[in-house]
């Protein structure tokens, strides 16, 4: 688009040179091709990663490797202890652990992130807004290993002293660490969604006599809800796949419990801590790839459901898409 406009601007006043413009059109076409190729490569890479992960797990589907079949991760007892006399590969404690930590992170992180986004988009004076947004975005740049280490060494002890936790590292400490990763993401995306609500909406609302707070909560927030919902889905995906923070801060015990105060072991942390050590091609190795597939399926389902719901939301708000 930009290219074409500039051609027209340049062409004005001078004698048109057909060869040149033909060349430019060609460049334009090439650019278009290049950009779409890059987009397709990104999709292809994700697809190939999935294929590779699934391929490593696949032999379990048609034969048992070291006594492990595709059903082993779903057999009783509900216990993940892959090394020992009778290895136990039940995946339920890991799935429960993963969702528990993710849920805690979302429950702690999203209200904060949304409130902050609403404040910066609607209430903060412009000079302050210019400071807050970059500051929160810097938070996103903190490497997760640093966050995890901070929770492991400092925060977990504070929490234990403050709330008298029996276990120093538990789902809550990991969830708080994860919230550090979720907040900046949810904040940035939802803040963008709020600011992109047309000014007209606000003016109309204020003109009808609504207060600033009423406008923000009853008009702007609903109008931005598809974008905010997308932010939540992104945050959820980030939290569920995050590895380093939970690896360091969760205690890694594969407990099957709904209590948030016991240590947990997540799918991603299990793969990270065990994959480096297993015999290449062995049963344990294949099961870890199966965990990868399960994690991939969970995030895909969440994203897909999120996208569908988002479309419905948009239709309800703005009519036909």
């Amino acid at each position: 688009m930009l290219n074409r406009t500039s051609t027209r601007v340049c062409g004005r006043g001078r004698t048109p040179r057909p060869r040149q413009s033909e060349f430019r059109i060609r460049i334009d076409r090439f650019g278009e091709f290049f950009i779409s190729a890059v987009a397709f490569i990104a999709i292809a890479i994700i697809f190939l990663i999935f294929i590779y992960v699934a391929r490593e797990a696949a032999p379990l589907a048609w034969r048992t490797v070291d006594g492990i079949s595709i059903w082993s991760p779903f057999q009783t007892p509900y216990m993940w202890q892959p090394v020992g006399g009778i290895p136990k590969f039940n995946v339920l404690p890991l799935v429960v652990g993963t969702f528990k930590v993710t849920l805690i992170a979302m429950l702690l992180g999203t209200p904060l992130a949304l409130a902050a986004a609403l404040y910066t988009a609607e209430f903060a004076p412009p000079s302050l807004r210019e400071w807050i947004k970059p500051a929160v975005e810097v938070l996103a740049g903190i490497p997760s290993v640093v966050v995890g280490f901070f929770v492991l060494i400092v925060l977990a002890s504070w929490l234990q002293d403050a709330f008298n936790f029996e276990f120093r590292l538990n789902a809550v400490s990991a969830g708080i660490g994860l919230a550090f990763a979720v907040i900046p993401l949810v904040y940035t995306v939802s803040e963008d969604a709020l600011t992109s609500v047309p000014k007209l909406y606000r003016e109309a609302s204020l003109a009808l006599g609504a207060s600033k707070a009423q406008t923000a909560i009853r008009v702007v927030l609903p109008a931005a809800s598809p974008g905010i919902f997308a932010a939540l889905v992104l945050g959820f995906g980030r939290a569920i796949g995050e590895t380093m923070i939970v690896l360091l801060a969760s205690g890694n015990a594969s407990t099957l419990s709904l209590s948030p105060f016991v240590p947990v072991r997540t799918l991603s942390a299990t793969v990270a801590s065990e994959l480096g050590e297993v015999v290449f091609g062995g049963g344990h190795y294949r099961v870890l790839f199966l965990l990868g597939v399960i994690l991939f399926i969970i995030t895909s389902i969440v994203n897909w459901v999120g996208a569908r719901y988002n479309r419905r939301l948009r239709q309800r708000l703005f009519g036909a898409t």
Binding site: M79, Q81, I86, F167, L169, G251, A253, S254, T255, P263
Partner: peptide
């Protein structure tokens, strides 16, 4: 004796 660790056993690196 080759039994299992308790559920709440926390493995570290």
């Amino acid at each position: 004796a080759n039994g299992d660790f308790a559920e709440r056993y926390q493995p570290l690196g």
